[in-house]
Design a protein around this nucleic acid. Structure first.
Lengths: 103, 103
DNA sequence: ATAACATATGAACATCTATTCAATTGTTTA
DNA sequence: TAAACAATTGAATAGATGTTCATATGTTAT
């Protein structure tokens, strides 16, 4: 099991990590980092089924990692807020840095 | 399956997130943030079995999230490098910030 | 060597979860 | 209204994974 309304901060953090810890889901989040993008466009861009993308987006939205905006038939998803964008951006910068390989 | 020697950056990032995405494991990592601490001390501090802690530490070590240092009978674990410490510290700061609850 | 302590490891199990497929809901156009 | 398009949802399944228990390995004492 995974959530209560207001969990302790560590559980909250773990939940966030867990959701970002799946390859497919992380790619989806990164695809809608900043710029809103429709479900179908995410799917074709990442070569995934609409269904799978939608399932993942549901989880991401429930965790407030992304937000949804409907425009006609399409629903555009984007990272929920600056909070999330910052975390992702920081992470990408971190892994871009050369790792000091100590042995 | 989860790893190749040099994965693409996104997979690498997902791996990191996935390992931090378990509540117990995250608490273990946070316990040995900066200051090295022995397995048994982690276990008693978090009220977990030595076995469980050791299992988790093995995964964390394999992913270079923590490093091990033996002193006599005890093995002290600490976050592997500044890279990891920074990520964790940043995250803790992030979740400490008030969330703007938009609806 | 034996004993006591600390950690690690393997197997087994139960739970969780990512994915697929089929069916449904919502939206626009004809 | 129907048809076409976009997204969602539910059920089913296969694979991953956290935890426990028992056993093994390593280390320091006696």
């Amino acid at each position: 099991m995974a959530h209560s309304l207001v969990e302790n901060p560590v559980s909250e953090l773990a939940d966030l990590f867990r959701l970002l810890g799946d390859n497919t889901r992380l790619r989806i989040v990164l695809t809608c980092l900043d710029k809103p993008i429709a479900v179908n466009d995410i799917a074709s861009k990442l070569d995934l089924s609409n269904s799978l993308v939608s399932h993942h987006l549901r989880l991401l939205k429930a965790a407030r990692i992304v937000k949804a905006d409907r425009h006609g038939k399409q629903v555009f998803y984007a990272t929920a807020d600056q909070h999330i964008s910052d975390i992702l951006t920081n992470m990408l910068e971190h892994i871009a840095e050369p790792h000091p390989e100590a042995d």
